[in-house]
Amino acid sequence: MPLPVYLLALAVFAMGTSEFMLAGLLPDLAADLGVTVATAGLLTSGFAIGMVVGAPLFAALARRWPPRTSLVAFLVLFLAAHVVGAVTESFAVLLATRVLAAFANAGFLAVALTATAALVAPDRKGRALAVLLGGTTIATVAGVPGGALLGALLDWRATFWAVALLCLPAALGVLRGLPDTREAHGTRLRTELAVLRRSRLVLVMALGALVNAATFGAFTYIAPFVTQAAGLGDLWVPVVLVLFGAGSFTGVTIAGRFSDRRPGLVVAVAGPPLMLGWCALALWAAHPALLFALAFTQGALAFAVGSTLIARVLHEAADAPSMAGSYATAALNVGAAAGPVLAGLALADPAGPLWTAAVLVAAALVLAAVNRRAFS
């Protein structure tokens, strides 16, 4: 695998830590800023909405820029948003910084997905994307639990400062590892946008949105679930996050070997257990051993299916070389925006977000079963 793919994964690790870190910080953050936990959950939705809007917008703006210049600029903007977020006393300002950070993250990921796909042969896109998304899964293994622990020992602001510092080596790696070349995209922007009319592309984007809504809906409220439904102390939250992240890394790594040639098999094999796993977690969270085991398996299954759908979006949008990454980013973050909102509506029961996740995965499975040819 080319070295630049790993350098891009390092940057994705920094951004992934920020994207997921609120899962372990919501209760303390809400108390500090004087809002409810459900209101604080809007920070996750705001971030996701920023990703949805920012991905196509920034991809379109940056399509004529050298990729290295674009990626470093997005990282600097991301860093600045976290510095402001770390010092503000206003929930509204914090929400605005999350949206701004999401714009930067969206632009970076859209360019990085396209650049990664261009660095390897067509039959190795799935594996290359698995490495890139490995940055996100490692963030759930190390960055997010570390942030939750840092927040428990100090406060949630310390986690924001830590993410800002992570951006520095990531930017240096991109600056030194990627060539300063300008990609020539002969396809007109209007032509690239026209691929969104394809039913197969719209289908896999919808599936990605549903699966990601389930994952983010459950993951955003994992802290209150662990402490209330499972009855464990605050310091057990990072443990559950580590297990979920370790499963995520395992799932995306294994799926990367099959997503190019057998995407339908990945969805068919991992999808039903993913749905049943959310149900099992909601029912038996009071048993710590089962909680820990399911945290691992749900991470593996969610990211196996999710990463396969990302690869499939890029495959279906191959005729949009500069915009394909933004379509994958936007589709998955439609789910990331909707998931926490829907899960928050069910938060009266600490297990409610998990039941919501199960329903969303069930809807994705029905849609995939009716349209099996999309994976041929």
Rank of each mutant, 00 (worst) to 15 (best):
Ala171His: 11
Val239Ile: 14
Asp32Leu: 00
Ala324Arg: 04
Gly186Glu: 12
Leu243Asp: 03
Val174Ser: 07
Phe216Met: 02
Thr215Lys: 01
Leu33Ala: 11
Val12Phe: 11
Ala115Ile: 02
Leu193Val: 03
Val83Leu: 15
Ala142Trp: 06
Val370Tyr: 13
Leu77Met: 06
Arg68Thr: 05
Ala362Glu: 04
Asn212Arg: 04
Val341Pro: 05
Tyr221Ser: 10
Val366Ser: 00
Gly186Met: 10
Arg262Val: 07
Leu149Val: 09
Val237Gln: 11
Cys279Met: 13
Leu29Ile: 09
Val237Glu: 00
Ala194Gly: 13
Val240Thr: 15
Leu150Asp: 01
Leu42Met: 12
Val237Pro: 08
Glu183Val: 14
Arg182Pro: 07
Ala104Gln: 07
Ser376Tyr: 02
Glu19Gly: 00
Leu133Ile: 15
Pro340Glu: 06
Ala255Asp: 14
Ala304Gly: 09
Ala162Arg: 08
Ala343Glu: 09
Ile310His: 12
Asp234Val: 15
Arg176Met: 08
Thr297Asp: 12
Ala112Lys: 06
Ala343Met: 00
Ala302Lys: 00
Gly24Phe: 02
Ala362Cys: 07
Thr220Arg: 01
Phe13Leu: 08
Leu365Lys: 01
Asn105Tyr: 03
Val174Gly: 09
Ala184Asn: 12
Leu281Met: 14
Ala117Glu: 03
Pro273His: 13
Phe103Lys: 02
Val305Met: 05
Pro263Ala: 10
Gly24His: 03
Ala357Trp: 10
Leu210Ala: 10
Val84Ile: 14
Ala351Gly: 00
Ala282Asp: 14
Gly256Asp: 02
Thr250Glu: 06
Ala311Asp: 10
Lys125Trp: 01
Thr114Ile: 10
Leu150Glu: 01
Ala30Val: 09
Ala40Tyr: 05
Leu150Lys: 09
Leu301Thr: 02
Met323His: 05
Phe244Tyr: 15
Ala346Leu: 15
Phe303Leu: 08
Gly325His: 02
Phe292Arg: 07
Val361Arg: 06
Pro66Thr: 11
Ala268Gly: 01
Val269Ile: 07
Ala171Asp: 11
Leu189Cys: 09
Gly352Val: 08
Ala330Glu: 10
Ser45Lys: 00
Leu265Ile: 09
Leu113Glu: 08
Ser326Ala: 15
Arg68Asp: 04
Arg373Tyr: 11
Gly177Ala: 06
Leu149Pro: 03
Gly256Ala: 13
Asp260Pro: 12
Asn371Gly: 01
Thr39Ile: 14
Val141Pro: 04
Gly299Cys: 04
Ala324Lys: 12
Val5Phe: 02
Glu89Trp: 01
Ala31His: 12
Ala171Asn: 09
Val84Cys: 05
Pro56Asn: 04
Ala338Gly: 07
Pro27Lys: 02
Thr159Arg: 00
Gly24Cys: 06
Gly34Asn: 10
Gly107Cys: 07
Trp355Gly: 02
Phe216His: 08
Thr356Gly: 02
Ser307Asp: 05
Asp234Lys: 10
Met323Cys: 08
Met1Ser: 15
